[in-house]
Amino acid sequence: MICIDSLQIRVNRMLLLAVGLWPYQQSKLVQFQLILFFTILTSFIIFQFTAFLTSKCTPDLLINVLSSTLFYTFLVVKYSWFHINIEDVKCLLEQLQNSYKKLTDENEISILKKYSSYAKRYTAGLILILTFMGPGIIIYEFCPKFFDILLSINESRRFSPRKIIVTEYFIDQKKYLYLILLHENTALLIGIIALLATGTMLIVYLQYACGMFRIACYRIEQSMAVDALRKGSLRNKNLTFQKLIRAVDMHREAMKFSDSSVSRFKVMFSFMIVIGLVSGCLSLFRLFQGLSLGHNVEEIMLPLTSYLIYLMYLFLSNYTAQEIMDHNNDVFITAYSIQWYTASLKVQKMILFLLQRNTKVFNLNIAGFFVGSLETAAAIFSTGLSYFTVLYSIQN
């Protein structure tokens, strides 16, 4: 069992518990919770596709259904894959705990705490953002009168709950409207909490990896302290060797942990990139089509929300991966920048051995197709805009 307080992941634990993904409490009740949540999500996707059985398959209907079903599929993939690899989640947490326990230097402990606080800020910020996005749709459906007044809509209409997603339950939609909305909003809420819980947990892993890289830099700097080199005693030379060895070990551990955090979810990331790209393009098309045709707010709220979630997930995940690359490069920049020329020949050879590792590029590779970086995020975003432009021009 890990120490929640030492790793500062209390909020992340609560989010994972809410959707049954906390790896240390997998009781029968939690297993039932997982099955129930997965059934709610997948059944809502199915009831969107059944709309094709009772309605004429027009391009507009196809785009509307696909954009929403792919969005929920995006959520289901993240939720289910995290559960499938729950033992890997547990293993990564235990690796973090072991790395934290090995630290004895107060400065190194403070470095790791600083990066854990960064992860807490990411979590808090994402909670605030998604709190306004997801529940905003739910409130809009159940409180239309309030939003109509707020948005100064002067059209005379009956103030009743509104469906914003095309579904077919083969029942009287008006009579059972509240049950249908309950199913729709429960699925949305589960999916968003699952996305938030799993996404922030991955951010925690990568932020701790950044902390490990920074500790490696700190150890290199300390190993080449000027005072220790000037004395030139055998004891100080041995101390320099030991600190360099510990720096190399921490660097290797940071790279291994970073790669493990991503490699165990490569298939999931590949699916999410493809689904997010297609669904994001369709959502953007629905958004622009709704704005150009002057559709009601409810018809553009879901595509707007889903597209913003895709963008946020795309750039935040790639930004975190970019941070890993930058922190890895900082290790070699530190090795270049220290006063290595004042050290003994043996120490210089050891530093040269460390610098040779820089000839191999280290990055977070997704199934051999994508490299996590801001450049990749911009390329995917540009590709999505290109597909949207072609689709919009064909439709019009």
Rank of each mutant, 00 (worst) to 15 (best):
Ile4Tyr: 09
Asp5Phe: 11
Ser6Phe: 08
Gln8Glu: 08
Ile9Cys: 08
Met14Cys: 04
Leu16His: 02
Val19Asp: 03
Leu21Lys: 11
Leu21Asp: 10
Gln26Ala: 08
Gln26Val: 02
Gln31Phe: 09
Gln31Lys: 15
Leu41Pro: 06
Phe44Tyr: 15
Phe52Gly: 01
Ser55Arg: 15
Lys56Gln: 14
Asp60Phe: 11
Leu62Pro: 03
Trp81Gln: 02
Asp105Tyr: 07
Glu108Pro: 01
Leu112Cys: 03
Leu112Met: 14
Lys113Met: 08
Ala119Lys: 07
Ala119Ile: 02
Thr123Gly: 01
Leu126Tyr: 11
Ile127Gly: 00
Ile127Met: 04
Phe142Ile: 11
Phe146Ser: 05
Ile149Asn: 13
Glu168Asp: 15
Tyr176Pro: 01
Tyr178Phe: 12
Ile180Arg: 01
Ile180Cys: 00
Leu181Phe: 09
Glu184Asn: 11
Asn185Trp: 04
Leu195Pro: 00
Leu195Gln: 07
Ala197Trp: 05
Thr200Ala: 05
Val204Pro: 00
Tyr205Asp: 03
Tyr205Glu: 05
Cys210Thr: 07
Ile215Val: 15
Ala216Asp: 09
Arg219Phe: 01
Ile220Asn: 07
Val226Glu: 12
Ser233Gln: 06
Leu234Asp: 13
Asn236Phe: 14
Leu239Thr: 13
Arg246Thr: 03
Met255Ile: 04
Phe269Val: 02
Phe269Ala: 08
Phe271Gln: 07
Leu277Asn: 12
Gly280Pro: 02
Leu282Val: 11
Ser283Phe: 11
Gly294Pro: 01
Ile300Gly: 07
Pro303His: 00
Ile309Cys: 06
Asn318Ala: 00
Tyr319Asn: 00
Asn328Leu: 10
Thr334Pro: 08
Thr334Tyr: 05
Tyr336Gly: 07
Ser337Cys: 12
Gln339Ala: 12
Trp340Ser: 07
Ser344Arg: 03
Ser344Ile: 01
Lys346Cys: 01
Val347Asp: 03
Phe362Ser: 00
Leu364Gln: 01
Asn365His: 10
Ile366Asn: 04
Ala367Lys: 03
Phe369Leu: 06
Phe370Arg: 08
Ser373Trp: 00
Ala378Tyr: 13
Ile380Arg: 04
Thr383Tyr: 14
Leu385Lys: 10
Leu391Gln: 06
Ser393His: 12
Asn396Gly: 04
